[in-house]
Design a binder for these strands. Structure first.
Lengths: 194, 194
DNA sequence: GGTTTACACTAGCGCTTGCTTGGTTGATCT
DNA sequence: AGATCAACCAAGCAAGCGCTAGTGTAAACC
């Protein structure tokens, strides 16, 4: 019987599922498609996951967990100034899009397909990540680096960043660091032109 | 037989479909649900639309068309300064979220469910809207109102604005004009605090 | 060396899906 | 008065859906 274990096989399957969910969307991805991609038959899939919902939850949990870890790490490694911390957060966010893009896209666009139980569980993770952003933005406000309403500014910034998954091309010339720098320059009152 | 006509009934059905697509998502909205919401039987639905895809296309087309019309109108009515034009665009965008929210959410989140033919047709409309934004941002750059990379700034702004559908509460205290003002203040180099 | 465990298979059940078919109604036009 | 037409309904088909039941097998464990 399957449980909610964390076998390495399950991790690999979750990664493959994320890719398919991005390509086709959760609802259009059938268990048979998932199984084929994984090289097994559809019945065998339910040895690893209780049901299709649990696969979605696993994908989103991993993606959000990674983003949170990376953001924490970035904040610890950077300097203390509000400017540096703002840069670090933006850079970390964009870097996860390179390493973990699929899981992120799923988290953003298939969130509503989670059932109530999974959503309750995962919203804590998501909130933790958003609160991290709000804290850094608070610091930037306090330091006089940016101005405006705390709530609105953080939403605008999150929107600008999350929207990047729609157009950002990892193969292109622009590096995550460039984007992070440009974004921070846009919202701070600096007057340097690029 | 049904054609791609523009009967008033069809418009009404499109509006109802938009609401259901937002509530449930396109894939989870069955033709039976749509029919019930419209007060008819599922078979009768195919008198008005060739297939389910066409309903989605109709919803998105209307929403985007309206947004484009409103933006054009706003630009004509406002002053000539880059600042005024920036404000006008932001205000128009947020106002459509009040009057036409459902269609917009569908356009943003169910775009990928369009088949290739519909997508090709509708992408022209969407591009026209985005180009309008880029033009206004170009003007703001030329006027020295904002700084940075033309492409990046417009993407960031579009992201911040489109993300509003996730958190903006039309019943709340914040009015579209407030948001528009705050957003423009954030990206321009003004140093006024609010 | 016997038992357990992890992982996979085959086969298919019960249900829902988008869509079709053939026919009925009431208003409008000639 | 007859013809036309948009709008609807009842019934159902073929395909696909998530998921289950029961079995096989090789490695791991006591």
């Amino acid at each position: 019987m399957n449980v909610v274990n964390e076998s390495p096989r399950r991790k690999e399957l979750t990664r493959l599922a994320a890719q398919l969910f991005v390509q086709e969307g959760f609802d259009r991805t059938t268990v048979r498609m998932l199984a084929q991609e994984m090289g097994i038959k559809s019945g065998s899939l339910f040895h690893h996951f209780r049901d299709k919902q649990e696969i979605l939850a696993a994908v989103i949990e991993e993606g959000t967990q990674n983003a949170l870890t990376l953001a924490h790490q970035a904040l610890e490694e950077c300097g203390d100034s509000a400017d540096e911390r703002l840069h670090a957060m933006a850079r970390a966010h964009l870097q996860t899009l390179l390493t973990d893009r699929n899981a992120h896209v799923v988290a953003l666009y298939e969130w509503r397909r989670l059932d109530a139980a999974a959503r309750a569980h995962l919203s804590h993770l998501r909130d933790a990540y958003e609160e991290l952003w709000e804290r850094v933005i608070d610091e930037a406000l306090a330091a006089g680096l940016i101005h405006g309403d705390r709530f609105l500014v953080s939403r605008f910034v999150m929107g600008a960043l999350n929207w990047t998954v729609r157009w950002y091309d990892p193969e292109g010339a622009r590096k995550p660091d460039d984007l992070a720098h440009e974004l921070v320059a846009m919202i701070t009152s600096s007057s340097r032109a690029s």
